[in-house]
């Protein structure tokens, strides 16, 4: 039998970025990337999205910061991070040794902070930024901007002026109408939107009669939230023309492909990294095998191909 010479194309484009495959890591679950170098080939990833970076280092919340729930987990880390300067001096030079594009997730307590971090990253080796307007775990962690149309317009205006590479807006499922916010981001120059961030949740310790997390509330992630995420990605992808990056409970390549068919141009792997640190590369490999097995030339041919009965 003649062997097929067809070359399977797993690459996708997000703004100005060309990714070798549609699998990225979700911010906050992949550290600064380097923590995973003994568990997977960092160059087999579409992109590395690092933990949220602020202008100044942030201590984060008091422990307990995490608790497992049914098919999921709650976290309230509180955006602990080393700050943009230390990220650029200590982490980025090591990350830059890998060919995989690095996307910096950024956040701030006010619009000015966001723009300042973006500006600081403008001339760095960082390939793009993901703007976190959706962290539910600190009083001022972006969530206050999630549905604030004026603030988003101001923020995107400011960022686009100082940052010329790819800008992704990470959206919250916790407030208002996520499609409307996505549309707004598109109108004001975002290159892509990523969704969903975690859902606000809570766990109670019955014996102690206290909240389990010191922050009381945390962000729910993991397989438990996948159906919610799929619905939001589907609704959003119907409304916007810019790429939608699907996030939420993706554990394997089949989950990832479901998001892609529902409208996502790429996906991010989050909680799965804790269970299996090699999860993102397994997802990427699984997608490639699926395409080959089904003789689909390019993963792009699968985006938004959901059939309706």
């Amino acid at each position: 039998m003649k062997k097929s010479t067809m070359k399977t194309d797993t690459s996708v484009s997000i703004g100005k970025l060309n990714l070798k495959n549609p699998v990225m890591t979700a911010s906050g679950t992949f550290g600064y990337g380097l923590e995973f170098k003994d568990f997977l080939d960092l160059e087999a990833l579409g992109a590395i999205v690092v933990k949220g970076i602020a202008l100044e280092p942030v201590l984060g919340n008091r422990p307990q910061r995490i608790v497992e729930t049914a098919s999921g987990m709650l976290n309230a880390i509180g955006l602990q991070n080393i700050g943009v300067e230390k990220f650029l001096s200590d982490k980025m030079p090591l990350l830059a040794r890998y060919k995989t594009p690095v996307i910096a997730n950024i956040y701030g307590t006010d619009v000015k902070d966001y723009v300042a971090v973006a500006e600081r990253l403008a001339d760095s080796a960082v390939a793009g930024i993901e703007v976190n307007i959706s962290c539910p775990n600190v009083k001022k962690g972006g969530l206050q901007f999630a549905a604030d149309r004026k603030a988003i317009i101001k923020m995107l205006g400011g960022i686009k002026k100082v940052y010329k590479k790819t800008v992704i807006m990470k959206l919250s499922p916790n407030t208002g109408n996520i499609e409307d916010i996505a549309l707004l981001c598109e109108d004001y120059g975002a290159d892509a939107v990523s969704l969903i961030n975690t859902l606000v949740g809570m766990a109670v310790d019955l014996d102690k009669k206290t909240p389990v997390l010191s922050n009381i509330y945390g962000g729910l992630s993991g397989p438990a939230i996948k159906p919610v995420a799929l619905a939001m990605v589907h609704k959003t992808a119907k409304r916007v023309k810019i790429p939608v990056i699907g996030i939420g409970g993706i554990m394997n390549y089949r989950d990832a492909l479901e998001f892609i068919i529902a409208g996502a141009s790429a996906v991010q792997i989050g909680t799965a990294n804790f269970r299996d640190p090699a999860a993102p590369v397994k997802v990427a490999a699984g997608i490639k095998e699926y395409l080959e097995a089904n003789k689909i030339k390019s993963v792009k041919n699968l985006i938004k191909t959901l059939k309706y009965q």
């Binding site: 550290g31 923590e35 933990k51 984060g60 990294n273």
Partner: peptide, 9 residues
Amino acid sequence: GCGIGACVS
């Protein structure tokens, strides 16, 4: 969470 230094839990 992760046990490998990434999640800072």
